[in-house]
Design a protein around this nucleic acid. Sequence first.
RNA 1: GCCAACAUAGCUCAGCUGGUAGAGCAGCUGAUUUGUAAUCAGCCGGUCGGGGGUUCGAGUCCCUCUGUUGGCUCCA
Length: 646
Amino acid sequence: MINITLPDKSVKQYEAGITPMDIARDISEGLARNVLAAKVNSEVKDATLPIEEDVKLSLLTWNDTDGKAAMWHSSAHLMAEAIELLYPGVKFGIGPDIENGFYYDIDFGDHAISEKDFPKIEQKMLELAREKQTFDRKEVSKSEALDYFGKKGDEYKIELINDLEDGEITFYSSGYFTDLCRGPHIPDTSPIKAVKLMKVAGAYWRGDENRKQLTRIYGITFPKKKELDEYLVLLEEAKKRDHRLLGKELELFTFSQQVGQGLPLWLPKGAELRERLEQYLKRVQKEKGYDQVITPHIGNVKLYKTSGHYQKYGEESFRPIKTPVEGEEFFLKPMNCPHHCEIYNAFPHSYKDLPLRMAEFGTVYRYEQSGELHGLTRVRGFTQDDAHIFCTPDQIKEEFNGVIDIIHQIFNALDFKDVSIQISLRDPDNKEKYIGSDENWEKAERAIIEVAEERGLDAHIEYGEAAFYGPKMDFMVKDAIGRKWQLGTIQVDYNLPERFDLTYIGSDNEKHRPVMIHRAPFGSMERFVAVLIEHCAGNFPLWLTPDQVIILPISEKYQSYAENVLNLLKKYEIRGLIDGRNEKTGRKIRDAEMKKIPYMLIVGEKEENEGTVSVRKHGEGDMGTYDIEGFAKLINDEVAELLADK
RNA sequence: GCCAACAUAGCUCAGCUGGUAGAGCAGCUGAUUUGUAAUCAGCCGGUCGGGGGUUCGAGUCCCUCUGUUGGCUCCA
């Protein structure tokens, strides 16, 4: 007999060789129907594999991430089977489960596949799923495996097998389809009740752009049709929040073919909003001891040879600009740091000057591959809320703390509640890759980890993800519908101080090398605004939104009263406009709601006589009557609350 | 850059297998003077992304360029 410990800590005894499926059946028939896989100790396995010794066991269902993964991985096999039946002779790459569904990379040979083919593949998958095909695991020797795919003529699988050790190779067969696969899989295909293929895309074999591009088909499956429908609704919701759509509707920004792809044009409302963000950050930074600087948009090629960027990115950048007479070469600046290093070098520095914090909303230009461009999130010209802190190695910790304060403060003001952090450190097994002394790296890495610990930040460490010039800390936010975005960053840099020969005189009257910290709380204004739009679905925080109020006179008779109200509100620093159109109030309200203006003030005879406004809040409705001062206080209190340094 | 799809009025879209462009909204004009999510009527508006080809005839078929979208690769 063996002891099986279940998640509720209860222990059950069974004959050795029992399967998780049998145990599920022993617990309840209902559970058995829902079991997709099993977690045996810490490994996820097929629910049909026998257990021979004492283990901890969790039975995984659709409610478990690992259960979903098994289902989706099995769905990838099911799709492959359907495709193999419909398009004989295709060759298969890899087909894993992903966060939302699965994909399979397939070489269709000369046959071009498109989304038009999806319905027939989906139908075939459902048909096969109904056959309740089991996933049968089989251990095979390397030569058997090579023999099978050799006969099939699938060079991709052969390449994969060649990278595996003999003895660790398993095949899974379901219905007419056999695949090289580590598993685990669901017991049979019956839980796959709803299938949706999402998109086709090209994907390089093994992610290598020099190798053949396979056709990747993405899909997702569910145990209930209803869940698929809900998922599609969620996708619709994400679509409605798309910053490219809202950017156009709310007149925030646009693009022009004439100006060039990836070069955003900020419209008045968008520019005003962005300016407000910048002013806010500037104010916070001023309080925290930053100095604002301004540098030009181009820099001599020599600057980038010194910084090393020329050697690294020269060929993949925009081509240099040449002066007509001297033939001198200049590059559009791809980052601000080299310019800032030269500002540092303009004067000698004492240790007493440090830390020196140099901030600039610097617009930079980077050549991005055309296929990479996307709305405001990936562009060729953008403005970083950049700053460089020049400090001693001992000051790193304190400076990190200061930057984190700023980041928290602004995320808070913008209603990003769910913030997580990635700390990227050196690959401990590969220290030669990095510039800078071992001692300095250790000091910086320790400082970053300590800061995260002392502040109790939700941080995780990634080894080997540091830049070659220093460790970094990246800030991720989760938006209102649960998507993760990478925003701010803080990076330690030992490289540029070296390359630009930055020094300060220490208390020992000797020259020392400062450390540089790059930091950008928003990252780029463009990307940040995009994320903000999607996060708040265009309903910006009151302090930031282009128009805070719109005054809706009931008829032209009340136009002058509306103007009086607007002028009074201006005195309280409240931004607004009047909808003086010859339209019915219902229409004006509707239009104001669509423009997502936070407050609507309806004024007619009653209000004019009493010197009041009738307040309607966006998305909520009638709030009753306020006098002007009372309303101004309502607005200003709300703004103060949002901007309070919590 | 690569794979695939798409590109028709300012916006959202219709236009079957090729016969010479249509709706709603927006805009303009007029009527209406309006009380919490669309008042009515009329008018204006497109060399169907650019170029080339097939055809008696191309928005529709083919090639090519540009751009957009979804991925891949990349991201100082």
